[in-house]
């Protein structure tokens, strides 16, 4: 099942961002990734803002998965 595989991948990638295993990603967590990813802090902030749905300052696993799903072209969590 592609969706299950997708969600599993999303979960793994989420954990790469949520190093402290808080269960959510903040803008600060995102900006810390600049040492590991070839993106600027501005780009990481832009990614955060485009993934975040409700503008509460936290990126949840659901929001993250939806963003990845949209990127890959698979509809998740309808």
């Amino acid at each position: 099942d592609v969706q299950v595989e997708m969600l599993e991948k999303a979960r793994e990638l989420f954990q790469l961002c949520d190093k402290e295993e808080k269960g959510f990603i903040t803008k600060l967590d995102m900006q810390r990734l600049q040492s590991e990813l070839p993106l600027t802090p501005e780009q990481l902030e832009a990614v955060f803002e485009s993934l975040e749905q409700d503008n509460n300052g936290y990126l949840t696993p659901v929001e993250f998965s939806m963003g990845l799903g949209k990127f890959i072209g698979i509809e998740l969590y309808q």
Partner: peptide, 29 residues
């Protein structure tokens, strides 16, 4: 205008982000 900024994000940066994460994931055992 924050909306313009968000629009400028576009898929390029997101693609870069996810691709980098994916290659990082597969790069480590």
């Amino acid at each position: 205008d924050p909306n313009m900024k968000a629009g400028a994000t576009s898929e390029g940066v997101l693609a870069n982000f996810f691709n980098s994460l994916l290659s990082k994931k597969t790069g480590s055992p």
